[in-house]
Design a protein around this nucleic acid. Structure first.
Length: 467
DNA sequence: TCTGGGGTCCTAGGACCC
DNA sequence: TCTGGGGTCCTAGGACCC
């Protein structure tokens, strides 16, 4: 419990159960945050790593640390740090590449556990979530006890340690769980759950640095500091209009409300996804359009495949570029009907010419926005393809369907047809049975011998090789 | 030390409509 | 002929989150 003496932390044990002044009424929200999530999953899957410095992240020359164990943190390793620097600080660390699929799997189990405990759960990424432990105005059991039990259940059933913050408001629950994380898990005994009761809110917030608040990043913190504002307490007498002028209406209002103790954002179940995107950062900056096109090609196909596998339809395609100075540039094409690889590819390639191509390109991204549900399922565009009896192509054998003259992906109609063909081939022969030719050929020295938009149906005997 | 990948939301200007 | 005010959508850029 955080008393009015700020950060005098103790657990609920101190006051016993259910005797908090707010325990009888009022909303109670918990924020649960897993410790060193990706690294913890790696330890879970390889117990030999227990107790050792583990660093998970990108392996290339420009990789960064995505997650690291507390043992690694003792050496000054932290997330978002370049991998090169992490190795310098902790040469004995065990380095592991990212396994996104595995983290999603564990994340789903985590979410399922939380959903057993509360009807209203808002996940944040894979490793945190807000839960409504008690709705406003309702009575019920001891929310603090519930929070402790939940944390224990996560530890027992998933083997993952966590910190929990409990408060009447969302942002305070988050700040409370962060307070619990000031100590490494092993030294946290008895302080794994930090509670900020309503009467302690103001005293808890006042000394916090503005940059620690959720929603206040480096830029906003710098703008505030330039006006002599460093801690939440400094904002008490700043008029709302001044904060709006400084930070814009939305951020200004929000920060003002927070400082007045009036910020109360709802815990919301996850909304449907709004976009799908893929980024590729090059080992070295690129200088030429053809290399960029090749990257766009691979990214567009990957995005389109995910779109198709989810059965979604997108309204716009976005091409992004990061230059050597880390500035981002984006170009959008809207009013499209995008369903899969080929229909992402065509607009994405068209957008390359509209980007201001600087001397150096550090990264390229392709995304689709304006997602809508199920594209209409139409019957196979290829006679016989959906029927039993059509064999797979043999080695060295090609199945060719002419869809249109000229560049195959030349029009939206044709790329839409290609997406349908691919979907039909894959439904029958598996997900890797049909791939864009230039992606395959582009792996070798053949360059673009088969142009972008061509379709290759791959015999199963070759699929492993194609990767 | 020189900075990933996947997202969300906000802002500001302009087009367009009533 | 020149004008207000409100609404929506699009685009590009940017801040922020994990």
């Amino acid at each position: 419990v955080v008393s009015s003496a700020p950060l005098a932390l103790a657990t609920g044990e101190a006051g016993g159960r259910g005797d908090l002044s707010w325990a009888g009424r009022g909303p109670v929200i918990a924020h649960l945050d897993l410790d060193a999530f990706f690294a913890a999953v790696e330890v879970l899957d390889d117990p030999d790593l227990q107790g050792r410095p583990v660093v998970v992240g990108g392996t290339g020359p420009r990789g960064v640390v995505a997650s690291c164990s507390y043992e690694a943190r003792r050496f000054g390793v932290s997330s978002a740090m370049p991998m090169v620097e992490a190795r310098r600080r902790c040469p004995q660390a065990v380095l592991r590449p990212l396994r996104p699929g595995r983290y999603r799997e564990v994340g789903r189990a985590f979410l399922a556990l939380l959903q057993e405990a509360s009807a209203v759960v808002e996940p944040v990424g894979l490793d945190e979530a807000y839960l409504v432990l008690r709705r406003a105005g309702s009575r019920g059991g001891d929310p603090l006890l519930a929070a402790r039990q939940l944390r224990e259940r996560v530890a027992e059933q998933l083997g993952l340690s966590s910190a929990v913050g409990v408060a009447a408001k969302k942002h305070l629950a988050k700040l409370a769980s962060r307070a619990a994380k000031r100590l490494p898990p092993k030294e946290r005994q008895g302080q794994e759950v930090v509670v900020v009761p309503p009467e302690a809110e103001a005293a808890f917030l006042a000394p916090l640095a503005l940059g620690e608040l959720p929603g206040v990043g480096p830029v906003t913190a710098r703008r505030l500091a330039a006006c002599g504002l460093h801690r939440v307490g400094d904002l008490r007498t700043v008029p709302r209009s001044a904060l709006r002028r400084l930070l814009g209406p939305a951020a200004g209002d929000r920060l003002w409300a927070l400082a007045q103790g009036e910020l109360d954002e709802p815990v919301r179940p996850p909304a449907p996804r709004r976009s799908i995107s893929k980024v590729l950062t090059f080992p070295e900056d690129l200088h030429h359009a053809p290399e960029i096109r090749r990257a766009v090609l691979a990214l567009a196909v990957a995005v389109g495949e995910e779109l198709a596998s989810r059965g979604l339809l997108a309204r716009s395609v976005v091409l992004g570029l990061r230059d050597a100075n880390h500035h981002d540039h984006r170009r959008t094409l809207s009013n499209l009907s995008v369903t899969g690889p080929w229909s992402v590819l065509r607009p994405a390639l068209a957008l390359v010419d509209r980007l201001p191509l600087p001397g150096t390109v550090r990264a390229v991204s392709v995304g689709v926005h304006g997602l809508r549900g199920d594209p209409p399922v139409r019957q196979s565009p290829l006679p016989g393809l959906g029927e039993p009896g059509l064999g797979e192509p043999g080695l060295g054998e090609h199945h060719t369907w002419r869809v249109a003259r000229g560049t195959p992906a030349a029009t939206p109609e044709v790329s839409g047809q290609l997406d349908q063909i691919v979907a039909a081939v894959r439904a029958r022969f598996g997900p890797r049975a049909a791939l864009p030719a230039s992606v395959l050929v582009g792996r070798g020295d053949q360059g673009e011998a088969v142009g972008p938009g061509s379709l290759v149906v791959v015999p199963s005997a070759l699929r492993e090789d194609w990767g």
